[in-house]
Amino acid sequence: MNEALRNKLAANETAFGLWVTSEASAVTEVAGLLGIDWICIDMEHGYLDYRDIQTHLSAARGTNLTVLVRPPSQELEPIKRALDVGAHGAIVPLIDSAEELHAVHEHFYYPPLGRRGIGGERSVKWGLDLEQYVTNANDELLLIPMIETQRAYENLDEILSADKLETVFLGPGDMSASRGAVGEWEGPGVAEMNLDILRRATDRGISSGIVARSTEEAITRRDQGFGMVSLGSDIGLMIRQIKTMAEALGKETTGHRWF
Protein backbone atom coordinates (compact mmCIF):
# COMPACT_ATOMS: atom_id res chain seq x y z
CA MET A 1 0.00 0.00 0.00
CA ASN A 2 1.04 3.56 -0.80
CA GLU A 3 4.53 2.65 -2.02
CA ALA A 4 4.26 4.58 -5.30
CA LEU A 5 2.86 7.66 -3.55
CA ARG A 6 5.51 7.58 -0.83
CA ASN A 7 8.25 7.23 -3.44
CA LYS A 8 7.04 10.38 -5.21
CA LEU A 9 6.85 12.34 -1.98
CA ALA A 10 10.32 11.15 -0.95
CA ALA A 11 11.68 12.33 -4.31
CA ASN A 12 10.06 15.78 -3.80
CA GLU A 13 7.77 15.20 -6.76
CA THR A 14 4.16 16.34 -6.77
CA ALA A 15 1.60 13.55 -6.62
CA PHE A 16 -1.62 14.59 -8.34
CA GLY A 17 -4.94 13.31 -7.08
CA LEU A 18 -8.69 13.38 -7.49
CA TRP A 19 -11.45 14.00 -4.95
CA VAL A 20 -14.15 11.36 -5.46
CA THR A 21 -17.72 12.38 -4.62
CA SER A 22 -19.61 10.02 -6.95
CA GLU A 23 -20.40 6.36 -6.34
CA ALA A 24 -19.46 5.51 -9.95
CA SER A 25 -16.47 3.16 -9.74
CA ALA A 26 -15.62 4.04 -13.36
CA VAL A 27 -14.23 7.31 -11.98
CA THR A 28 -11.55 5.41 -10.06
CA GLU A 29 -10.94 3.01 -12.94
CA VAL A 30 -10.27 5.92 -15.29
CA ALA A 31 -8.11 7.68 -12.70
CA GLY A 32 -5.95 4.58 -12.51
CA LEU A 33 -5.75 4.26 -16.29
CA LEU A 34 -4.68 7.91 -16.56
CA GLY A 35 -1.91 7.46 -14.02
CA ILE A 36 -3.43 9.61 -11.28
CA ASP A 37 -1.40 9.05 -8.10
CA TRP A 38 -4.14 9.05 -5.48
CA ILE A 39 -7.82 9.57 -4.88
CA CYS A 40 -9.73 10.65 -1.80
CA ILE A 41 -13.22 9.21 -1.37
CA ASP A 42 -15.21 11.88 0.48
CA MET A 43 -17.52 10.62 3.22
CA GLU A 44 -17.47 13.89 5.16
CA HIS A 45 -19.81 15.56 2.67
CA GLY A 46 -22.32 14.01 0.29
CA TYR A 47 -23.80 10.53 0.36
CA LEU A 48 -21.02 7.96 -0.14
CA ASP A 49 -20.92 4.96 2.21
CA TYR A 50 -18.78 1.90 2.91
CA ARG A 51 -20.22 -0.08 0.01
CA ASP A 52 -19.12 2.74 -2.30
CA ILE A 53 -15.60 2.66 -0.82
CA GLN A 54 -15.42 -1.05 -1.55
CA THR A 55 -16.44 -0.64 -5.21
CA HIS A 56 -13.89 2.14 -5.72
CA LEU A 57 -11.20 -0.03 -4.16
CA SER A 58 -12.13 -2.89 -6.48
CA ALA A 59 -11.80 -0.53 -9.44
CA ALA A 60 -8.31 0.47 -8.28
CA ARG A 61 -7.07 -3.11 -8.05
CA GLY A 62 -4.01 -3.77 -10.19
CA THR A 63 -2.92 -0.10 -10.26
CA ASN A 64 -0.52 2.00 -8.18
CA LEU A 65 -3.39 4.23 -7.13
CA THR A 66 -3.50 5.14 -3.44
CA VAL A 67 -7.12 5.10 -2.26
CA LEU A 68 -7.69 7.35 0.74
CA VAL A 69 -10.96 8.06 2.54
CA ARG A 70 -12.04 11.26 4.23
CA PRO A 71 -14.28 9.99 7.06
CA PRO A 72 -17.19 12.09 8.28
CA SER A 73 -15.59 12.55 11.70
CA GLN A 74 -12.64 11.65 13.90
CA GLU A 75 -14.64 8.93 15.65
CA LEU A 76 -13.77 5.24 15.89
CA GLU A 77 -16.51 3.76 13.72
CA PRO A 78 -16.00 5.55 10.38
CA ILE A 79 -12.20 5.28 10.54
CA LYS A 80 -12.17 1.61 11.56
CA ARG A 81 -14.79 0.59 8.99
CA ALA A 82 -13.10 2.48 6.14
CA LEU A 83 -9.84 0.70 6.91
CA ASP A 84 -11.57 -2.66 7.31
CA VAL A 85 -13.05 -2.46 3.82
CA GLY A 86 -9.53 -1.85 2.51
CA ALA A 87 -8.81 1.89 2.35
CA HIS A 88 -5.10 2.65 2.11
CA GLY A 89 -5.37 5.48 4.61
CA ALA A 90 -7.44 8.44 5.71
CA ILE A 91 -7.49 12.20 5.36
CA VAL A 92 -9.05 13.12 8.69
CA PRO A 93 -10.97 16.40 8.89
CA LEU A 94 -10.77 19.19 11.45
CA ILE A 95 -7.73 18.14 13.45
CA ASP A 96 -7.24 21.06 15.81
CA SER A 97 -4.57 19.75 18.19
CA ALA A 98 -1.95 17.11 18.78
CA GLU A 99 -4.30 15.56 21.35
CA GLU A 100 -7.00 15.09 18.72
CA LEU A 101 -4.49 13.53 16.32
CA HIS A 102 -3.29 11.18 19.06
CA ALA A 103 -6.91 10.13 19.68
CA VAL A 104 -7.22 9.26 15.97
CA HIS A 105 -4.05 7.15 16.29
CA GLU A 106 -5.97 4.99 18.75
CA HIS A 107 -8.58 4.18 16.08
CA PHE A 108 -6.19 3.97 13.16
CA TYR A 109 -3.31 1.77 14.35
CA TYR A 110 -3.12 -1.74 15.73
CA PRO A 111 -1.44 -2.28 19.12
CA PRO A 112 0.99 -1.24 20.41
CA LEU A 113 0.52 2.08 18.58
CA GLY A 114 -3.26 2.13 18.89
CA ARG A 115 -6.32 0.06 19.72
CA ARG A 116 -7.68 -0.89 16.31
CA GLY A 117 -9.47 -4.20 16.54
CA ILE A 118 -8.63 -7.12 14.28
CA GLY A 119 -11.44 -8.26 12.00
CA GLY A 120 -11.82 -10.61 9.06
CA GLU A 121 -13.07 -8.14 6.47
CA ARG A 122 -11.94 -7.12 2.99
CA SER A 123 -8.69 -5.48 4.14
CA VAL A 124 -7.35 -8.89 5.21
CA LYS A 125 -8.87 -10.65 2.18
CA TRP A 126 -11.61 -12.07 4.38
CA GLY A 127 -9.03 -13.61 6.71
CA LEU A 128 -6.91 -15.21 3.98
CA ASP A 129 -4.18 -12.58 4.36
CA LEU A 130 -4.71 -11.59 7.97
CA GLU A 131 -1.21 -12.17 9.31
CA GLN A 132 0.56 -10.23 6.56
CA TYR A 133 -1.88 -7.32 6.71
CA VAL A 134 -1.85 -6.85 10.48
CA THR A 135 1.94 -7.20 10.57
CA ASN A 136 2.48 -4.42 8.03
CA ALA A 137 -0.56 -2.14 8.38
CA ASN A 138 0.91 0.22 10.98
CA ASP A 139 3.79 1.01 8.62
CA GLU A 140 1.91 0.96 5.33
CA LEU A 141 -1.30 2.86 6.09
CA LEU A 142 -1.23 6.63 5.62
CA LEU A 143 -2.83 8.94 8.19
CA ILE A 144 -3.16 12.54 6.99
CA PRO A 145 -4.68 15.20 9.27
CA MET A 146 -6.42 18.20 7.75
CA ILE A 147 -5.22 21.59 8.95
CA GLU A 148 -8.27 23.74 8.32
CA THR A 149 -9.04 25.96 11.31
CA GLN A 150 -7.47 28.91 13.07
CA ARG A 151 -7.04 26.74 16.16
CA ALA A 152 -5.14 24.11 14.17
CA TYR A 153 -2.86 26.83 12.83
CA GLU A 154 -2.18 28.08 16.34
CA ASN A 155 -1.33 24.50 17.40
CA LEU A 156 0.61 23.67 14.25
CA ASP A 157 4.00 23.04 15.85
CA GLU A 158 2.50 20.52 18.28
CA ILE A 159 0.55 18.78 15.49
CA LEU A 160 3.66 18.56 13.31
CA SER A 161 5.51 16.94 16.20
CA ALA A 162 3.12 13.97 16.30
CA ASP A 163 4.49 10.47 15.80
CA LYS A 164 4.39 8.89 12.33
CA LEU A 165 3.22 12.11 10.65
CA GLU A 166 4.22 12.13 6.97
CA THR A 167 1.77 14.53 5.35
CA VAL A 168 -0.75 17.20 6.28
CA PHE A 169 -3.59 18.39 4.06
CA LEU A 170 -4.70 22.01 4.00
CA GLY A 171 -8.31 23.16 3.85
CA PRO A 172 -8.30 26.82 2.80
CA GLY A 173 -12.09 27.16 2.61
CA ASP A 174 -12.70 26.00 6.16
CA MET A 175 -9.64 27.88 7.38
CA SER A 176 -11.17 31.03 5.90
CA ALA A 177 -14.54 30.27 7.50
CA SER A 178 -12.91 29.78 10.91
CA ARG A 179 -11.45 33.28 10.53
CA GLY A 180 -14.77 34.90 9.65
CA ALA A 181 -14.58 34.74 5.83
CA VAL A 182 -17.33 32.15 5.29
CA GLY A 183 -17.67 31.07 1.66
CA GLU A 184 -14.25 32.37 0.59
CA TRP A 185 -11.59 29.93 -0.61
CA GLU A 186 -8.65 32.00 0.60
CA GLY A 187 -9.98 34.74 2.82
CA PRO A 188 -7.82 37.54 4.21
CA GLY A 189 -4.46 36.19 5.30
CA VAL A 190 -5.16 32.55 4.40
CA ALA A 191 -2.97 32.47 1.29
CA GLU A 192 -0.01 33.51 3.44
CA MET A 193 -0.97 30.95 6.10
CA ASN A 194 -1.04 28.17 3.49
CA LEU A 195 2.53 28.92 2.49
CA ASP A 196 3.61 29.22 6.12
CA ILE A 197 2.13 25.77 6.90
CA LEU A 198 3.87 24.38 3.82
CA ARG A 199 7.21 25.85 4.90
CA ARG A 200 6.98 24.73 8.50
CA ALA A 201 5.94 21.21 7.52
CA THR A 202 8.69 20.98 4.91
CA ASP A 203 11.27 22.02 7.49
CA ARG A 204 10.29 18.91 9.47
CA GLY A 205 10.37 16.62 6.45
CA ILE A 206 6.57 16.50 6.25
CA SER A 207 4.82 17.00 2.92
CA SER A 208 1.67 19.06 2.41
CA GLY A 209 -1.42 18.59 0.27
CA ILE A 210 -4.01 20.99 -1.07
CA VAL A 211 -6.89 21.13 -3.57
CA ALA A 212 -6.45 23.12 -6.79
CA ARG A 213 -9.44 24.68 -8.52
CA SER A 214 -7.93 25.05 -12.00
CA THR A 215 -5.03 23.88 -14.13
CA GLU A 216 -3.23 27.14 -13.45
CA GLU A 217 -3.66 26.74 -9.71
CA ALA A 218 -2.42 23.13 -9.86
CA ILE A 219 0.74 24.36 -11.60
CA THR A 220 1.18 27.08 -8.97
CA ARG A 221 0.76 24.62 -6.11
CA ARG A 222 3.25 22.23 -7.72
CA ASP A 223 5.76 25.01 -8.14
CA GLN A 224 5.23 26.15 -4.55
CA GLY A 225 6.30 22.70 -3.39
CA PHE A 226 3.06 20.99 -2.39
CA GLY A 227 3.58 17.22 -2.41
CA MET A 228 -0.07 16.26 -2.94
CA VAL A 229 -2.27 18.36 -5.22
CA SER A 230 -5.86 17.45 -5.98
CA LEU A 231 -6.92 18.41 -9.49
CA GLY A 232 -10.46 18.82 -8.19
CA SER A 233 -13.46 16.57 -7.66
CA ASP A 234 -14.97 14.19 -10.20
CA ILE A 235 -18.21 16.17 -10.52
CA GLY A 236 -16.41 19.50 -10.25
CA LEU A 237 -14.08 18.60 -13.12
CA MET A 238 -17.04 17.57 -15.27
CA ILE A 239 -18.77 20.88 -14.56
CA ARG A 240 -15.57 22.82 -15.25
CA GLN A 241 -15.05 21.12 -18.61
CA ILE A 242 -18.67 21.46 -19.72
CA LYS A 243 -18.72 25.15 -18.78
CA THR A 244 -15.45 25.77 -20.63
CA MET A 245 -16.77 24.09 -23.77
CA ALA A 246 -20.16 25.79 -23.56
CA GLU A 247 -18.61 29.22 -23.14
CA ALA A 248 -16.24 28.58 -26.05
CA LEU A 249 -19.28 27.71 -28.14
CA GLY A 250 -21.00 30.93 -27.16
CA LYS A 251 -23.61 29.29 -24.94
CA GLU A 252 -25.01 30.81 -21.76
CA THR A 253 -23.97 28.65 -18.78
CA THR A 254 -26.22 30.19 -16.16
CA GLY A 255 -29.51 28.91 -17.61
CA HIS A 256 -31.08 25.48 -17.43
CA ARG A 257 -30.44 24.55 -21.07
CA TRP A 258 -27.21 25.24 -22.93
CA PHE A 259 -27.86 23.47 -26.23
Rank of each mutant, 00 (worst) to 15 (best):
M1V: 08
L5N: 09
G17A: 01
L18Q: 02
S22Y: 05
E23R: 15
S25V: 02
S25E: 02
L33G: 11
L33W: 12
D37M: 07
C40Q: 02
I41E: 01
M43T: 07
Y47F: 08
R51W: 06
H56D: 00
S58D: 02
A60G: 14
R61V: 03
R61W: 10
G62T: 09
T63F: 10
L65V: 11
T66S: 15
R70H: 10
P71Q: 11
P72T: 04
S73Y: 08
Q74C: 09
L76I: 03
I79K: 14
A82Y: 12
V85Q: 08
V85A: 04
A87L: 05
I91L: 09
I91D: 08
V92T: 10
I95W: 09
E100V: 08
L101N: 05
E106V: 14
E106D: 14
H107F: 06
F108M: 00
F108N: 02
Y110M: 01
L113Q: 09
R116E: 03
G120E: 01
G120D: 05
S123M: 06
L130R: 11
N136F: 06
N138F: 10
M146H: 11
I147E: 07
Q150E: 13
E158A: 15
I159Y: 13
A162N: 04
L165G: 04
L165S: 08
F169D: 00
G171F: 11
S176P: 01
S176W: 12
S176Y: 10
A177T: 04
E184K: 14
G189F: 10
V190F: 15
V190M: 12
D196V: 11
R199D: 09
I210H: 10
R213C: 03
S214Q: 08
S214K: 08
R221A: 10
D223Y: 15
Q224V: 00
Q224K: 11
G227M: 03
V229T: 07
V229Q: 07
S230H: 05
L231Y: 13
G232Q: 06
S233R: 04
I235Y: 15
I235K: 11
G236L: 04
Q241A: 14
K243N: 09
K243A: 01
L249S: 13
H256S: 06
